[in-house]
């Protein structure tokens, strides 16, 4: 009997270790693949041109150019816009669900918000074309609504479930004793909320927002459909933008393997990978510090 138990113990321990190893190996494999292929791009065009203000035009009529500055700005604009919209909305919603609203409402609303994460990105992109785009065009008197702001709004909705769900957990985790102490000193609910509960979960909310941003920055289909994909350097939220993700998605299918263009797309993917890695890593660090403090 014991022998068999030892065997299963051993078996599950090893298989769990193996599955952990597989995901790490995949991550390392992706990183290696991107780095090796990007290296060939940098050998051919140099880091200078890649990060220069030259246009992104690999299929040019005369001389191709490979500057990703306008693509980086495109990604940056849509992501920052999404964060500015989703962060206050998401955190506000989390506080409402956890502290203000009745608990039956929370039991209905939270699963609904989390369900929003299940909406396929192509549907969000479609909404961007037929709903958000025409609305923006009318509201701001623009010729069309295929711009960075459209992408930001859609990405905000896509980041919202992550932000609300994680923030709500963070707010819930604030010890009841803090709030009771505040009430005991004569503070009302609003004062307690803004001056005790909120400061207590700053870093957790930051982690929640960053996880949402990580989701937004890597999103492809939605921005590809809704932002117009013009490669010109954007001048603001009302410009059409082309993000890094959209560029890789549009061009990878048609590029002949082994060309400079092909390797440069890998370099684009590497840049994106490093950005998301950095964001997710920092979010994890913040969250980990929080967990340690909570113990």
């Amino acid at each position: 009997m014991t022998r068999r138990r030892y065997f299963w113990n051993w078996f599950f321990e090893k298989s769990l270790a193996l599955s952990a190893l597989v995901s790490i190996a995949t991550l390392m494999g992706i990183f290696l693949l991107l780095t090796l292929n990007s290296w060939k791009a940098f050998e051919r065009i140099g880091l200078g041109e890649f990060f220069s203000l030259d246009a992104w035009n690999p299929a040019a009529f005369d001389a191709p150019s490979y500057g990703i500055a306008s693509l980086l700005v495109g990604t940056f604009l849509t992501t920052v816009g999404a964060t500015l919209l989703a962060a206050p909305l998401g955190v506000g919603m989390a506080f409402f669900l956890s502290e203000v609203g009745p608990s039956w409402l929370r039991n209905v609303l939270k699963p609904m918000v989390e369900l929003m994460a299940a909406v396929p990105s192509v549907i969000m992109g479609f909404a961007g074309i037929v709903l958000v785009g025409p609305f923006l065009a009318q509201a701001f008197d623009l010729p069309n609504g295929l711009n960075a702001l459209n992408g930001s709004i859609l990405l905000a909705f896509m980041a919202l479930p992550t932000i609300v769900s994680v923030s709500e957990d963070v707010v819930q985790a604030v010890p009841q004793a803090y709030k009771e102490a505040s009430y005991a000193l004569g503070a009302n609910r609003w004062e307690t909320l803004t001056q005790v509960t909120l400061p207590a979960c700053y870093s957790g909310l930051l982690a929640a927002i960053m996880l949402g941003v990580g989701r937004a920055i890597g999103e492809t289909m939605t921005v590809l459909m809704a932002t117009g994909n013009a490669t010109a350097m954007p001048s603001g939220f009302f410009s059409s933008v082309r993000t890094i993700t959209a560029t890789v998605a549009i061009e990878m299918g048609e590029v002949p393997t082994g060309t400079t263009h092909y390797y440069t797309l890998f370099a684009c993917a590497l840049v994106l990978f490093l950005i998301t890695l950095l964001i997710n890593y920092s979010a994890e660090r913040v969250a980990a510090r929080l967990r340690k403090r909570g113990q």
Binding site: A55, N57, F61, S70, N144, N229, A230, M233, S240, I250
Partner: peptide
Amino acid sequence: RDFSPALKQ
């Protein structure tokens, strides 16, 4: 020659 970069693709 090249399309204007303002072309929405």
